[in-house]
Write a protein that binds this DNA or RNA. Structure first.
Lengths: 384, 384
DNA sequence: CGGCCTAGTGTGAGCGCTCACAGATTGGCT
DNA sequence: AGCCAATCTGTGAGCGCTCACACTAGGCCG
């Protein structure tokens, strides 16, 4: 490792404390700066002993390539921008983290612009901020309806990928199949509830994911010939689930509820507990997201797991294809299948045939520390 | 807003699709490139009508300054690096988000390097990755013991701030006062439990925060003249809390438990529920972190809230001071006070005087949707 | 009325790198 | 020996910006 301090004090005695540059390395290795550049980039067309000399000069000087200079001449920043909301929500936060990880693996940097809302003005400002970078591509974590349309004409020629939310536009997008997930969980509740109507607590109406979960829920009920009750509005927050829970507990005719995310389901379970409604004996409950804590709710919550890491990888993969590949590479719409994870909250206790396909009564690993996520669940094939 | 496509096709008919540069703007405004630069930077020493002409030329051309060129000559990237773990944990994720937000407000970009562990090799590699940037300063989210020491000599002259974990080194650090938080929650449990010993489920032993919570817990017990029971080891995960809960439920003599984070407390509550232990009637429970869901656990969980946004702001503030200020600016150790949030899980039901200082039986806002975080809680003065 | 200050502007160099191309060296064939 | 191709290496320009400095014009003083 480097033992020589930065800067050079040999040769011409330039006393500057500036870091060593390519020319310094070249001089030390007895080659030209261009050969150093070749070693760093091509690796080809350089005789191996020359390369070795250059590499050891780099090591000795503690040389690090100046990426600003590199970016200047190549017009490539190796940076992707991410536009996101100030969400500490489990889903978006996990996706963002996965994106950062995937980008790092692909050798790109990520620059995050957080916006407070999806109004046009905020979007424009975020783009400005990112373009200062500048960025080579854009990931838009745009879970609200209409974001894609609003942004549509803002970039020209800038590679972009919409995550969790874009549809219909010709642009690249990556998402988890929310309709399939909602269908699966609804069908499961129908089966466990012996065909009784499945109620639904929605997410905010302007979220694409919330809307698609409604669609999946409706279609499963329609296919079963069961009339859909009016959905109860929620806001993703536990308190909105709590409110919905109080509503549902007051009615006497509810047999099962599909809640659009786990946090709301937690609030709903709390309301049921206070109202003396037993889960799953009186009412079956299922959530969505499969947060790591879901297996430890009371009772352990049936949920739908999403592959956030996969979403991150696909997003970055699409951008890399668009930037490095030619033509229409990476332009498609990737749709990832979700996984139903069955736990106690949705299993009708009486007909004990309910234990199916590895689903257990969590906490299923018992006292074993670690991630409480059993490999249980069926993979759902992507329908579209 | 810009209606002219990028590049220029007027003047000398250069057909290039390159974006407009400073010289293009200068030509259009009838000034020199240097005057354009002055408008963009100093703003001083330019006559106002000249400035206006330059600004409108910028607008018309859709000019955006090339930050690579700027960074090259100024040797300033306006970028901070963040070294973090692949944590989807609530605390680190919130802190990271707060850091990004604070940096954006201060006009800096953030580059995140995620490492899988705090071994020396991984750290070195992360530094390499960030230095490629290069970055002007470093935020080290280093919650593991000894990270600071391991990194100690790796940078020379690079501004750095340790978040949640560093101590004793002379370097800048920002953290929440874990000892004070643990003391407060332990004292509260002692009072509610009428002086009965408070048990403790710890976090992983190599986490600074876990260790300091143990310290706070011990000192509160010592001050009260109560012997500290052996702490139960945990891993931050709900399942480890579940395991600890089974252990504690088996003993008959436990009156109260302070669990080192909310996720473990959730697992512990689950174990108690299965074992037929009632909370708070049989055992009082409190957690740490005050995750947004804590108010909806069964029962609602007493916890300690940390000001993550404040941590983010302080971290970035310290780096900005170090970079822009002179000398020893921003070098101190900032310690932020936590807030105890009392909920049902820790309130002894019999002596009803327990309702104090705004603490309520959550979900205290009832059915109102929104953040389930009451303004309740006492602020703890920073002791150190 | 010439010298000097100040405000406003222009000129040229160069940051560290990559690109396009030119030059040097080698080896294999006639 | 001579020549061509293949392989390796060097040269110089220039990316878009900021910095240091030179220059001009006008106002004020001696």
């Amino acid at each position: 490792m480097s033992t020589v301090p930065v800067g050079r004090s040999d040769e011409d005695g330039a006393s500057a404390v500036r870091p060593p540059n390519m020319r310094d390395v070249a001089r030390r290795a007895g080659v030209s700066h261009q050969t150093v550049s070749r070693v760093l980039n091509d690796a080809s067309a350089v005789r191996s002993d020359t390369r070795d000399r250059v590499l050891s000069a780099i090591e000795e000087l503690g040389y690090r390539r100046n990426s600003a200079a590199r970016a200047l001449v190549t017009r490539r920043s190796r940076t992707f921008g991410v536009i996101t909301m100030p969400a500490t929500l489990y889903g978006p936060a996990s996706t963002l983290h996965a994106i950062e990880l995937a980008a790092q693996e692909a050798g790109y940097f990520v620059r995050v612009a957080t916006i407070s809302g999806f109004e046009r003005h905020a979007l424009t400002e975020a783009l400005r901020w990112l373009e200062e970078g500048p960025v080579e591509g854009l990931v838009v974590l745009a879970p609200l309806l209409g974001t894609a349309a609003k942004l549509g004409e803002l970039w020209e020629e800038m590679p972009v990928v919409f995550v969790e939310g874009a549809t219909s536009t010709g642009l690249a997008s990556v998402s988890v199949d929310q309709v399939a997930g909602a269908r699966a969980v609804t069908e499961h509740l129908l089966e466990q509830g012996a065909g009784a109507p499945v109620w639904h607590v929605t997410g905010p109406a302007d979220w694409v994911e919330a809307q698609q979960r409604v669609v999946g829920w409706r279609s499963a009920l329609a296919d079963a010939g069961v009339r859909a009750p009016d959905p109860l509005p929620g806001t993703w927050s536990p308190s909105s689930g709590y409110a919905a829970g109080l509503d549902l507990a007051r009615r006497g005719d509810v047999r099962s509820v599909f809640v659009a995310n786990d946090r709301m389901a937690l609030g709903l379970l709390r309301a049921f507990a206070e109202a003396g409604v037993r889960v799953p004996e009186d009412i079956l409950v299922a959530g969505y997201d499969d947060v790591p804590e879901a297996a430890f709710y009371s009772p352990p919550l049936t949920s739908v797991r999403q592959d956030f890491a996969g979403v991150g990888r696909h997003s970055i993969g699409s951008l890399v294809d668009q930037v490095e590949g030619a033509g229409t590479a990476g332009r498609g719409a990737a749709v990832l299948p979700p996984t139903l994870v069955v736990r106690q909250s949705s299993l009708a206790p009486v007909p004990r045939r309910a234990r199916r396909s590895g689903a257990g009564w969590a906490p299923d690993e018992g006292v074993t520390p670690g991630r409480p996520r059993p490999p249980a669940g069926h993979d759902l094939a992507t329908p579209s």
